[in-house]
Design a protein around this nucleic acid. Structure first.
Length: 290
DNA sequence: AAATCTGTCAACCGCTCTTAA
DNA sequence: ATTAAGAGCGGTTGACAGATT
């Protein structure tokens, strides 16, 4: 539709947030709640666009944000989830209470991508942006100090907050194709999530691929109930959902898609580890179907 | 000690999806 | 049915810190 970017307004601040801005935003949201991002900056007395406010809140200021290193358990879950659904960072983050999609995405790009590559996975050698990063600007020591001071301050504030690890709500509807351009890596040979267009060979790009994923998600959800491979008696979805889901299933198994997904899914979740995540995956499926 | 390189991550951008008028 | 605003997502950028040369 060609709307102008929300941050295009003259006079709006961009770049790193100041402690004062953080305080204003936090105070406003604590008083009035989240939402109405468009009008929030004005009401809160911020010279920021709503989008920027939302991002700052979601990725940094929320009280339930979990700080600190990714644990090995989280690391493992991220890898498995990524193998399963690709770069759906918000979905993956939804499985890791207190973690943000941005954090997961960054973690993947900086740690796991490399790790997978070292393991011989079919990951691209280096993202285009990684090459560009090599040109650095090391000036502006003043900003260095400002940032450090701010981070120190934030850290102190963080430690004083009571952290409540609430699961992140997920906006996924099982009956619609979530994104027309969505791609899902379901090729277990690559065991990777393919983060760039260079890896399209490993992706299922068609809408059919999307359907496969949604079906797979339903399978996950029904598992504890002795799930039906065709999703016909999935206790989690409601009746009407089931009908529509069935219409998505490739009834013609001649191409073996469903069987392949099934195999890959259990390869990804080998029995030992799966026991560890069983409860979480069950919850995962339920939350997807909200 | 200075310059350069590399890793990290907050923030931005552009796009799609949802919803309401 | 159409349109526009709001919301959210994933990709990318760039500033900064620490490591290396």
């Amino acid at each position: 539709m060609g709307r102008a970017p929300c941050c295009s307004k003259v006079g709006l601040h961009k770049g790193p947030w100041t402690p004062r801005e953080d305080a204003l935003l936090t105070k406003y949201i604590q008083a009035h709640g989240e939402g109405q991002w468009k009008s929030l900056p004005k009401k809160a007395g911020l010279l920021r666009c709503g989008k920027s406010c939302r991002l700052r809140w979601m990725n940094y200021l929320r009280p339930d944000i979990k700080r600190g290193n990714i644990t090995p358990e989280e690391d493992d879950l991220i890898m498995r989830m990524h193998s399963l659904i690709g770069n759906r960072w918000s979905l993956i983050a939804g499985r890791l209470p207190g973690r943000t999609d941005n954090e997961i995405k960054n973690y993947w790009n900086t740690h796991l991508c490399k790790k997978m590559r070292n393991q011989g996975a079919d990951i691209e050698e280096e993202s285009p942006s990684a090459n560009k990063k090599k040109k650095r600007n090391n000036s502006n020591k003043k900003k260095n100090k400002q940032r450090k001071d701010k981070m120190d301050k934030d850290t102190n504030e963080e430690t004083q907050k009571t952290k409540v690890y609430l699961p992140k709500p997920i906006r996924v509807k099982p009956l619609t194709l979530p994104r027309t351009d969505s791609t899902f890596t379901l090729d277990s040979n690559s065991a990777s999530g393919a983060s760039s267009s260079q890896e399209n060979n490993n992706k299922v790009e068609s809408p059919e691929g999307t359907k496969d994923l949604m079906n797979l998600v339903c399978e996950v959800g029904g598992e504890n109930d002795g799930f039906d491979f065709l999703g016909q008696e999935n206790d989690i979805v409601n009746e009407s959902d089931v009908v529509e889901h069935q219409s998505y299933f490739p009834r013609d198994h001649s191409n073996g898609t469903l069987e392949k997904l099934y195999d890959e899914y259990f390869q990804l979740l080998n029995i030992e580890d799966y026991c560890q995540y069983e409860l979480d995956l069950d919850y995962f499926a339920e939350s997807l179907l909200v």
